[in-house]
Design a binder for these strands. Structure first.
Lengths: 119, 119
DNA sequence: CTAATATATGAACAATTGTTCATATATTAG
DNA sequence: CTAATATATGAACAATTGTTCATATATTAG
């Protein structure tokens, strides 16, 4: 273990107990990976805007595109990303597809972030 | 206004009141941009791991690098990103620089995300 | 059935991003 | 002062990502 550290870092000021302790408390690698993936989805202006719009009511793809002066294709691609991340769900009504928030967890994450941004 | 929509979208099913209402309630463009930037910072495994490590205690650059088997340079670059986003702060002690969380808002955002990932 | 139309999607391209490598800077020991 | 060393940083490169364009798919009207 110590060998490994030495290979990768020339530094000597390694606080082993601190590292062991922190490693012990950390969620599994996979969870942290998924968490980063989740935040990545929130990390784009277009997607943030879409989510924000859906806080008020469900909307069809065309509404959202018109709302932000963006192409239908761009919005559709992003809705796909949001849906894969389970942040939005949709329902079909004839040719129109209405998107809405998957749960109100989404707003909580959004609001926590907002609070930090506003300071 | 309607003209503009037509230019950008051939769709006819535009719910104007819905759009107006949602646009009215939305935070300013700049806030949403900053919010996306914030989430972008959370949207990387390395940075998520660093933040997670710092939940337990402050750590020097070398500790973090050793902890995740990563180079000092990679960690240093990422700490810079985290610091610009005001998610971490640091203190100097001789040649060693110790990083810690800027405030406990960070953990709240993290935990909200974690809750969604765990489902 | 055909035409119209709302949405989805693949490929391409430009832009952004994370790591590595080399090296600069800052601090301490001597 | 010089040597050692913890950290920071710029340039380069590969990988990822968002939008556009063209087109496919699905649904409804007739």
């Amino acid at each position: 273990m110590d060998e490994k550290h030495v290979e990768l870092c020339e530094c000597n000021v390694i606080h082993h107990e601190t590292i062991e302790f922190a490693l012990d408390k950390m969620p599994e690698e996979e969870i942290l990976y998924d968490l980063a993936e989740l935040f990545k989805v929130f990390g784009d202006t277009t997607r943030v805007k879409i989510l924000c719009a859906l806080f008020e009511s469900e909307m069809c793809v065309c509404d959202i595109a018109a709302m932000f002066n963006m192409t239908q294709s761009a919005i559709s691609h992003q809705l796909r990303v949001l849906k894969s991340a389970k942040l939005v769900k949709n329902r079909k009504s004839g040719k129109v597809v209405y998107y809405s928030l998957a749960d109100d967890h989404v707003k909580q994450i959004f609001d926590q972030g907002l609070a930090h941004v506003i300071e």
